[in-house]
Write a protein that binds this DNA or RNA. Structure first.
Lengths: 210, 210
DNA sequence: GCTGCTTAGTAACAAATGTTACACTTCTTA
DNA sequence: TAAGAAGTGTAACATTTGTTACTAAGCAGC
């Protein structure tokens, strides 16, 4: 764990903070599709993502969902930070998009560290900022783009996150993430294929153009 | 200024912090429709809203815009906090929705106060959380609601913020905020009027049902 | 092989939203 | 008061997105 921690955070946190994190943090491995945070959970800590990719999804009362963004290594979940500090409920769902490794930081330390470590203050503020920007990008996407553009952006973004040029997924899964129907996705995917940007296979989409 | 400051923040900040704010903060009055922050601005400070209402708007490259949310008294602009701390550009536009009063807090103090005052830490974290939640609500609205529902929500939300049951606005302005066309808004407003939820006048909409 | 399940393709239609065009009213101001 | 500007109402039509229904291909297990 210390090795991974050093790998991604030694340029972010000073040694004393890394030591503290090693002491009080709990390491956890996540399998692909494992649920990390569910809607309405109260967080007892904050996850630091050491490796992998986490999908953050929003769901409304009717059970309809939409993808908000992905977390990558080095990221933390601002929404659970919120929940942990205020002891409130979490408004999102977090699911491992592939096998991942995280460290859970206990709530009690979060405020102490804000006082003790400038790097922690920077990290927290920066995380919030990154997340706010991510949310704004999501809003741009929803407000300004048509479904075909959203779909193409989804495919290329996800390929980036997964570090693959082809995605193992179904049309139905994509439809859930973009909050539309399978038929619409099939239609638009076929269109993208005709434009030469992707090729379609069963359970797999190859991206030819980024 | 001290009086207004005490009015809304004496339960939020301790006396020492209020004193410091009074010393280093600059008071400013905003006229209705005055521009507070523009897209791409680099913030030299963070505004605390003492009174009034500020509209926060997002704009894409093509100049198309959409309303993100409103700030009320007691609020601060998380996005300018981001910009001030990281010295980056602000991704939003802030316009006074009615006459407002703000205090500008200089960048240099923001980090000091995080160390010195627990109430300031709470305020900053809380502001970010409120803003994240606000953004999620905006996303819900965009992803899950049809235009007629969005319009009705817009009207009632805005009435709440403005503390009025009737709004002085035009169909075109609403269309800008919801990122659609004037014709669509006129059509849906007429529909709401037929349902008995509002009555329409020139430059004015009365809300009958909340 | 056959059987059943999941995934994908596609047509036909429905609903929501966007666009263009024009008429009419109200307000402003020359 | 006449002329123009701004705001509104509405029809007709185009485009985008959603829905239903059905077909067929690929795969797993027997």
């Amino acid at each position: 764990m210390r090795e991974k921690l050093d790998n991604y955070f030694s340029f972010v946190f000073e040694k004393e903070l890394l030591d503290e994190i090693e002491q009080v943090g709990t390491y956890k491995k996540l399998r692909e599709n494992e649920l990390l945070v569910d809607l309405g959970d109260k967080m007892k800590g904050v996850p630091l993502l050491l490796d992998g990719a986490i999908k953050i999804v929003r769901e409304d009362k009717k059970g309809e969902e939409i993808l908000l963004y992905f977390l990558e290594r080095g990221d933390t979940c601002a929404s659970s930070f919120a929940s942990a500090i205020t002891n409130g409920k979490c408004g999102i769902r977090a699911i491992a998009e592939k096998d991942s490794e995280i460290i859970f930081l206990p709530t009690e330390k979060l405020d102490d560290w804000l006082v003790k470590y400038k790097t922690w203050r920077n990290f927290v503020i920066d995380s919030y900022n990154v997340r706010l920007n991510e949310m704004m990008e999501t809003i741009d996407t929803l407000a300004f783009m048509r479904m075909d553009e959203r779909l193409y952006k989804y495919l290329t973004d996800k390929a980036q996150i997964m570090r693959e040029t082809s995605l193992n997924t179904t049309h139905q899964e994509i439809a859930y993430d973009l909050h539309t129907s399978r038929v619409v996705i099939s239609r638009l995917l076929k269109q993208l294929e005709n434009e030469g940007k992707i090729t379609l296979h069963r359970n797999k989409i190859e991206i030819l153009e980024f």
